[in-house]
Design a protein around this nucleic acid. Structure first.
Lengths: 210, 210
DNA sequence: ACCCCTTTGTAACCAATGTTACTGTGCAGC
DNA sequence: GCTGCACAGTAACATTGGTTACAAAGGGGT
């Protein structure tokens, strides 16, 4: 755990805090597609993302989903953080986008570290800031952009996160993330292909130039 | 200032902190419609809302607006807070919904109080939590709801904030807040009137039963 | 009363997106 | 090779919301 932890966080946290994290943190490895947090869960530990990526989803009363944003190495879930502190249920779902390594911190440490370590405070506030910014971004996207632009953005993000220009995903799953229908996605993807921006294959999409 | 401050915050902050706030805080009174924070502003003070209400807006590149949420007494703007701490520009616009009293806290105090006062830490985290929740709510609204539902929600919120079932507002201004067109708003309002939920008057809307 | 300006009502039309339904295609398992 | 299934392509249509255009109503100033 030490090596991974250091790789991702040594330049953020002070020496002593890193040691504490090692002591009380529990490494958890989740497989692609695994649900890490479910809506309504009481959260009893705070996750530090060490390796991999997670997508954060919102669900409405009919069970329709919407992708909010991705988390990567060095991120934490401010939403979870927020839930920990407020001792409320999770408002979101977290799903592993690929195999992912996380260190779980028991919430008892939160209050303690916040008072004790400036680097921890900074990290927490930085996380909140990032997440608020990301939420604003999400709002911009759904409020101001058309579906074709949203789709392009989605493909870009996905390619970046997976560090691969070939995305293993079906039209249906894209539709779930964007909260639209499969037919609409197929239609727009076909248009993007005709524009030479992507290449469609079965079960995958090759990003050429978005 | 003392009385107002106590009314709004005495049950949140400890004695000593209240005294500090009184010492360094500056009371600011803004008139209805006044812009308190503009997008791109560097924020040099953190606002505590004492009396009145503020609406928080997002703007896209074409200048189109979208209402994010309202702030009321006892609230602070987590977005501003976030900007203060990160020393970044404001991502949002804040406009007084009515005459509003605010206490401005110099940002230098932020770090100090966060380390020193638990009640301050709790307040800050509570604020972040509220704002994240409100952002999720906003996302739900624009992602999952139709314009008629969004309009109803808007009227409800507005009536609550103004503590008045007669809303002084034009269709055009509603359209700005909801990021739609005046014609659409008029159309839907007329439908709501036919359903007996509101009563339309010139320059105002009476909420009957939403 | 008359003019002017803002606000609202409404029709007609358009564009984007969602829905339904059916077809085709590639792959896995037999 | 055949069958079944998940995935993808596409047409036709419905719905929602945005746009344009114009009329009418209210209210203030002279």
């Amino acid at each position: 755990m030490t090596t991974l932890l250091n790789e991702a966080y040594s330049f953020i946290f002070e020496e002593e805090l890193l040691k504490e994290i090692e002591e009380v943190g529990v490494l958890r490895i989740v497989k692609e597609g695994e649900r890490i947090i479910e809506i309504g869960d009481y959260v009893k530990a705070m996750p530090l993302l060490i390796e991999g990526a997670i997508k954060i989803l919102r669900e409405d009363k009919d069970g329709d989903e919407l992708l909010l944003y991705f988390l990567e190495r060095g991120d934490t879930c401010a939403m979870t953080l927020s839930c920990c502190l407020g001792e409320t249920k999770s408002e979101i779902r977290a799903v592993a986008e690929m195999e992912t390594k996380i260190i779980m911190i028991p919430i008892e440490k939160m209050e303690e570290w916040t008072a004790k370590y400036k680097s921890w405070r900074d990290f927490v506030f930085q996380s909140y800031h990032s997440r608020l910014t990301e939420m604003l971004d999400t709002i911009d996207t759904i409020a101001f952009m058309n579906m074709d632009q949203r789709l392009m953005r989605y493909l870009q993000d996905k390619a970046k996160i997976n560090q691969n220009e070939v995305l293993q995903i079906t039209h249906q799953n894209i539709a779930y993330d964007l909260h639209t229908s499969r037919v609409v996605v197929s239609r727009l993807l076909k248009k993007l292909e005709l524009e030479g921006k992507i290449k469609l294959q079965r079960n995958s999409i090759k990003v050429i130039d978005l």
